[in-house]
Every structure is written in C-alpha cells, then in structure tokens.
Computed example of a mutant assay.
Amino acid sequence: VKEICSYMGVSSDTVYRWVETHEMPVHRMGRLFKFKISEIDAWVKAGGANRKPQKGNSQ
C-alpha cells in the first residue's frame, strides 16, 4: 500500500477507501494487497479515481 500511495501521490486512507468500495483494482493475497501498475493506470485513465462510491457496494 505504501508503494501505491507513493506512486499515486495519495494517502493510505484514500487507497484503503478506494479498495473498500471496490473501485480500485487490487489482488488480495491473505492480508496483503497487491496492485498491478498497468491496472491502476487504466483505472485512473477510465476516471476510476473520480467516481463517487456507490451505496451498498461494500462487503
């Protein structure tokens, strides 16, 4: 998470919020989050970082 925060220039709270609302592409390996830079770049280009979270979209 620290590395993706640094890459994107956002806080860890922001990344966790995006992951929690199922907007940000992430792969879970146990307790670890793995991010593919190509997926993150495509998500940002598609406007994923600007979308408002949908209600009822959390686990």
Rank of each mutant, 00 (worst) to 15 (best):
V1S: 15
V1F: 14
V1I: 12
K2E: 14
K2L: 12
K2Y: 10
E3A: 14
E3K: 13
E3W: 13
I4G: 01
C5W: 06
S6A: 13
S6W: 08
S6I: 05
S6M: 12
S6C: 07
Y7A: 12
Y7K: 11
M8N: 02
M8H: 03
M8A: 08
V10D: 06
V10W: 07
S11D: 13
S12H: 11
S12P: 14
D13C: 01
D13T: 04
D13Q: 11
V15K: 00
V15T: 06
V15H: 06
V15A: 05
Y16K: 14
Y16L: 14
R17T: 12
R17C: 07
V19C: 15
V19E: 13
E20P: 00
T21N: 14
T21S: 05
T21F: 14
T21C: 10
T21Y: 15
H22E: 15
H22M: 11
H22A: 15
E23T: 07
E23Y: 01
E23F: 04
E23C: 05
E23H: 05
E23I: 06
P25R: 09
P25I: 02
V26P: 00
H27V: 10
H27G: 00
R28I: 02
R28F: 10
M29R: 14
M29S: 12
G30M: 06
G30E: 04
G30K: 05
R31I: 01
R31H: 10
L32V: 09
L32Q: 13
F33Q: 09
F33S: 07
F33V: 00
F35C: 10
F35K: 11
F35H: 10
K36S: 07
K36F: 10
K36G: 00
I37G: 04
S38E: 15
E39N: 07
E39H: 11
I40R: 02
D41H: 01
D41S: 00
A42Q: 07
A42C: 00
A42Y: 00
A42F: 00
V44I: 15
V44M: 08
V44A: 06
V44E: 11
K45Q: 12
K45H: 04
K45W: 00
A46E: 12
A46S: 08
G48K: 01
G48R: 05
G48Q: 08
A49Y: 09
N50V: 03
N50H: 04
N50Q: 11
K52F: 05
K52M: 11
K52S: 08
K52N: 10
K52I: 10
P53I: 09
P53V: 10
P53R: 11
Q54A: 08
Q54L: 11
Q54D: 01
Q54S: 07
Q54G: 00
K55Y: 09
G56W: 11
N57R: 13
S58T: 14
Q59E: 10
Q59T: 06
